[in-house]
Amino acid sequence: MTALREFVPREFVPRDRDQHPPAVTPIYKTSVLRGPHRPLISLQNSLSEVTGPVFGHGDIGPLDNDLILNYAKTGQPIGERIIMHGRVLDGSGRPVPGVLVEFWQANAGGRYRHRNDTYVAPVDPNFGGCGRTITDAEGRYAFRTVKPGPYPYRNRGNDWRPAHIHFSVFGTGFAQRLITQNYFEGDPLIGRDSILGTIPDPAARERLVAKLDLEAAVPLDTLAYRWDIVLRGSRSTLFENRLEGN
């Protein structure tokens, strides 16, 4: 059997590092010992960067995008029921279809189902807190969950994370790989967050904030937020090497 989808190897435009946090950001103390100090070495794309794994619906399960049901044991999880949805686009505004989007989050009380999380808030017996989906032909993703709660963490003496969901996104090539977090419009903790504060540009920070989307809400049932993701762009010309080599 051949690949479900052939590679369309496209060379990526260089990452716009001004949109991202630098490696070392003293406001977020852990980065001080974990961020590389030396400049990155710029690499022109080779096949190892323009290719990447492609996932299909066979890779994931039917409930994987429903965090309200995918770990329900004795009932549904406690919390505000929400739909999070949006599109994955590239820097040229093109939708990125058929890519894996994964997400993980704390429960409504701000506690993760993770052996290293010791926050006093209780684990929800019916909430796993993770899921995944694949973007459709228009680059859309959607999942249902409960709104995560804020939680404290050790950084400055009294630091609290705003409500947020962690996202992992694949593009068409390994060089597009992205992990980030999104936030919720109107959260008063947003302006005080040390991790969001690692991003120097206020406009870039604002692009991580999901907006309330009443049109996508299910009346009397589930509220909705919308958040779009932009991966680095690719050139419209195909990569100059054929996969078979030359």
């Binding site: 990452r15 716009d16 949109q19 991202h20 946090p21 977020y28 852990t30 980065s31 890779d59 994931i60 399960g61 994987d64 995918n70 770990y71 686009l89 590239d90 820097g91 040229s92 505004g93 994964e102 997400f103 993980w104 993760y112 189902r113 993770h114 052996r115 290293n116 999380d117 796993g128 807190g129 993770c130 995944r132 962690h166 992992s168 992205l178 992990i179 980030t180 977090q181 991790i195 969001l196 690692t198 991003i199 406009a203 870039a204 920070r205 692009r207 991580l208 779009d228 993701i229 932009v230 991966l231 680095r232 762009g233």
Partner: peptide, 30 residues
């Protein structure tokens, strides 16, 4: 052109989303 979505740290609990078994629970069939 659209500006890239900024990166954020994967955080201490990245395992829950991407390798949940290491986080201490089993959720996905695959």
């Amino acid at each position: 052109y659209l500006a890239e979505t900024p990166s954020q740290t994967a955080g201490p609990y990245v395992h829950i989303g991407l390798i949940p078994k290491q986080a201490g629970f089993d959720i996905f069939a695959n």
